[in-house]
């Protein structure tokens, strides 16, 4: 059962809790297939998103999830709020709590902000991405998608290609996949590899060809284009040559390997269009599954005894 009313990261979850969320999500996936895609359990609850970084897809996904659970959803717009007038993040969060919200979906460029807020708030805090720390609902929807295709996680080989050092998606997936018994490979240039990552139980590759060989799942990550100017990479072209997921490279993976991407994609930088749109791609399914998974998270956290 879920122990905490907050979802701060996958780090804090047990394998059992992860499976419980995924099982619940399949119930919601069924709901989403119906004509009436709405159920009533969070009637009267309100969900507020507080995003200090721009995001369209995650915010929209949470909004739909909340609404399909019959909760009210309000976006606290940071750019028009007092945050830019110098209000502290704690004051902003406490203000939202005083408005009577039950859930706060928070995204911030600084790692640890959801933890900071969870220490001062009564309401449930859900991490929608903090710095280079975690993006737990993304990893959960990725697991859900993998399970839908592979029927298991244990024993699979999952190759994650990209800017591991700055990727909270990679981190959450590494925790989730290793907790459930998958073999995880991380593939990226040494400049983008976080310190001592191998201690998390992953295999480190600098060669994409070697890293994707015989894997069951290939996950490519978005490359923030400003990495080039910071000296992590000589050029985006060279990055694509070395780490871009092309049809040729994908052939090295298992024949039935699936291709995933958390979006938004840079076509021609980390992934070739032919792969993104190809038969092995499950990228749009990930987006669909995101709603069911976020419904499950909201629903289960609402059921945790306060």
């Amino acid at each position: 059962m879920i122990k905490s009313k907050h979802l701060l990261g996958i780090k804090e979850l047990s394998a059992k809790e992860i499976y419980h969320i995924l099982d619940t999500a399949s119930g919601f996936k069924d709901v989403l297939k119906r004509d009436i895609k709405k159920v009533p359990p969070l009637r009267g609850k309100s969900v507020v998103s507080l995003f200090f970084e721009p995001s369209t897809r995650t915010k929209t996904s949470f909004a739909l999830a909340a609404k399909r659970l019959s909760a009210d959803f309000v976006n606290f717009s940071v750019s028009t709020s007092s945050v830019i007038k110098g209000e502290t993040i704690q004051d902003t969060a406490l203000t939202i709590q005083s408005l009577g919200a039950d859930f706060m979906i928070v995204r911030h460029a600084s790692s640890g902000v959801p933890h900071l807020l969870s220490n001062i708030l009564e309401m449930s805090v859900i991490n929608a991405g903090d710095g280079a720390n975690e993006h737990p609902t993304q990893a959960l929807l990725d697991l859900f998608t993998i399970l839908a295709h592979k029927k298991r996680i244990e024993g699979l080989t999952v190759s994650i290609i990209g800017d591991i050092a700055h990727s909270r998606v990679a981190k959450s997936n590494i925790y989730a996949l290793t907790k459930l018994g998958a073999n995880v490979r991380v593939i990226c240039p040494p400049t983008l590899m976080p310190a001592e990552i191998e201690k998390l139980g992953v295999d480190v590759f600098h060669s994409t060809d070697k890293g994707v060989k015989n894997c069951d799942v290939v996950m490519t990550l978005r490359l923030q284009l400003e990495r080039q100017s910071k000296g992590f990479l000589p050029s985006l072209e060279e990055y694509f040559n070395l780490y871009g997921l092309t049809s040729e490279r994908l052939k090295l993976a298992k024949d039935d390997a699936i291709v995933m991407h958390p979006g938004p994609m840079n076509r021609g930088v980390e992934i070739e269009s032919a792969v993104a749109d190809g038969p092995q791609s499950v990228i749009l399914e990930q987006v669909t599954n995101g709603i069911a998974v976020r419904m499950a998270v909201l629903y289960l956290l609402a059921g945790v005894k306060k």
């Binding site: 059962m1 619940t24 119930g27 159920v39 629903y299 289960l300 609402a302 059921g303 005894k305």
Partner: peptide, 15 residues
């Protein structure tokens, strides 16, 4: 998903 005791029940829901 249609129950009205999500917050009051001791056990957490299993779908």
């Amino acid at each position: 998903f249609y129950r009205d005791d999500l917050n009051t029940k001791e056990e957490q829901p299993v779908v």
